[in-house]
């Protein structure tokens, strides 16, 4: 498999710098903003959000709690107070609307770390990757809940590098950041998208919300696809693209319905043909207007594609 080391160049040349990096920039702003909400208090004495991503209180009125952690607590046979139960419900509803794993790409502090590793991987031409099944993380969700039940503790939080990094940044407990360093090296040298794409049970949990979440990426302009494969090169979950992008031959709609999609928008940025857009799950008619008038040559290209796709995804 040859991967384009600089997949964004074509999009930048055709759409300009902003349109080809918009989502990346917005995501970085979002990630920094979420961190700033927690840091303004300890740094400048202006308290907006207290706590961590595990559970927080914003402006003294809005409780937010990670539902996966509450689930572990329940497995460990602790019935949570109303405050954290309310917080978990708010987060759950929020991600049911805003896309499930949007947590991973827009909020999680580990994301810049793994994005950097993926970018370095492309630029350095590192193609070696350990083969790990992406489903493993779902099994890990089960393992975490089982361990919580058996040990009677919120088990994943004992080692969770995601909240550990957040605690390190917000509370200055620095050893916690060690996990993030390990993830960076793992993603760079051992497995492509190794952590977020294969192992992290937190992302896998939010992925289950993503299976029904409203906000999605849609390949609504898929008729314009020229099979440059750049979206596959930049997507952290490349297995989610083809069912939608190449769905015309199976009668599938253009919306990326897979829960694994983090709605990061990298495919939207990188596509020089503007195939992808943000959209709603409900807009998933198999034959939207543009594709019904798709010219014959595009259809020919699509039919020649499967061999390449399967090789790429294996």
């Amino acid at each position: 498999m040859t991967v384009n080391a600089r997949p964004y160049l074509e999009a930048r040349a055709q759409k300009g710098l902003w349109a080809s990096s918009k989502f990346m920039v917005l995501r970085r702003i979002s990630q920094v903003a979420f961190l700033a909400l927690f840091l303004s208090g300890p740094l400048f004495g202006i308290w907006i959000a207290k706590g961590t991503l595990a559970s927080s209180m914003t402006l003294g009125v809005l409780p937010l709690t990670d539902p996966f952690i509450v689930l572990q607590s329940l497995a460990a046979r602790h019935w949570p107070e109303a405050l954290s139960a309310t917080g978990a419900a708010i987060v759950l509803v929020g991600y049911l609307v805003f896309g499930g794993r949007t947590y991973c790409s827009w909020v999680c502090p580990v994301n810049p770390v793994t994005d950097l590793a993926a970018w370095l991987r492309r630029r350095l031409g590192i193609t070696f990757t350990a083969k790990i099944r992406p489903e493993l993380r779902l099994y890990f969700v089960g393992a975490v809940l089982a361990a919580s039940m058996l040990s009677g503790s919120v088990a994943w939080e004992l080692i969770n590098p995601v909240t550990a990094l957040h605690r390190a940044l917000v509370f200055g407990v620095w050893f916690g950041a060690g996990g993030a360093v390990a993830i960076f090296l793992f993603d760079l040298l051992v497995a492509k998208h190794g952590w977020c794409g294969h192992l992290c049970p937190v992302g896998a949990f939010y992925g289950q919300i993503g299976r029904v979440a409203l906000l999605r990426v849609t390949a609504d302009n898929r008729a314009a696809c020229n099979d440059c494969m750049d979206c596959f090169a930049v997507c952290p979950e490349p297995q989610v693209i083809s069912p939608a992008l190449k769905g015309e031959r199976t009668g599938a709609g253009p919306v990326i319905t897979a829960g694994d999609c983090t709605v990061c928008g990298a495919c939207i940025d990188v596509c020089s043909k503007q195939v992808f857009h943000l959209g709603l799950r409900s807009r998933n008619a198999a034959h939207p207007l543009p594709s019904t008038t798709a010219p014959a040559p595009a259809a020919r290209v699509i039919s020649s594609q499967p061999a390449v796709l399967e090789r790429d995804l294996s």
Binding site: G51, S55, D66, S73, G152, S153, V154, E157, F171
Partner: peptide
Amino acid sequence: ERDFLAACVRCGLCVRD
């Protein structure tokens, strides 16, 4: 301690207050 470890989510809100 055993029940505490089943209940504490390590949010640090007590530390903040």
